[in-house]
Computed example of a mutant assay.
Amino acid sequence: MKKIGLIGGTFNPIHNGHLYIASEAMEKLKLQEIIFMPAGNPPHKRNKDILDANIRSEMVNLAVRDYSGFTLCDYEVNKEGYSYTYETLKYLKSIYEDIEIYFITGADCLVDIFTWKNVEEILKLSHFVVFNRPGYPLEDLLVQKEKVERYYNKEIIFLNLLQMDISSTDIRNRIKNNSHYRFFVPDNVYSFIEKLELYR
Rank of each mutant, 00 (worst) to 15 (best):
G106F: 03
E194I: 14
I50C: 13
V148H: 08
V130A: 01
Y96N: 05
R65A: 09
N132L: 01
K90S: 05
I99D: 02
D98F: 03
N78F: 04
S179H: 13
R65Q: 11
E24W: 00
Q144G: 01
V60P: 14
K28C: 02
K3M: 01
K3R: 11
L198D: 10
D74T: 15
K45A: 15
E121I: 13
L89M: 09
P137C: 02
K93F: 03
L123V: 09
I101K: 03
R65I: 08
S94V: 02
A22E: 06
N47Y: 15
A53I: 09
G5R: 00
H127N: 15
E197V: 15
A39G: 13
H44N: 15
T169N: 06
E194D: 08
P43K: 12
G106P: 01
E97G: 02
R65E: 10
Y102W: 06
I50P: 11
N118P: 09
N54L: 09
Y91I: 00
Y20P: 02
D112A: 14
Q32K: 11
A107S: 11
S191H: 08
S68E: 13
C73W: 05
N61L: 14
N16W: 02
I4E: 00
P38H: 05
P137Q: 04
M37F: 11
K2V: 07
L19Y: 08
Y96R: 02
V130F: 00
N78W: 03
E197L: 14
S83T: 12
E149S: 08
I35S: 10
L159A: 00
H180T: 14
F114W: 06
K124A: 11
R174D: 09
T88G: 08
F103C: 04
D165M: 03
E120Q: 13
K154Y: 12
F114I: 13
L198A: 12
V148E: 07
K3N: 07
D187S: 13
P134R: 03
E155F: 06
S191E: 12
T85N: 09
I55H: 10
I99N: 05
C109D: 05
I171R: 06
V189E: 14
V129E: 00
V119T: 14
W116H: 15
Y181M: 09
Q144E: 14
S57T: 15
I166Q: 06
R182V: 11
N132M: 01
D187T: 13
K195A: 14
Y136H: 04
S57A: 15
K93V: 01
E155N: 14
N188G: 04
H127F: 00
D170S: 12
I113Y: 05
L196N: 14
V185M: 06
P38L: 12
E100Q: 09
N41M: 10
F70T: 05
C73K: 12
L161R: 02
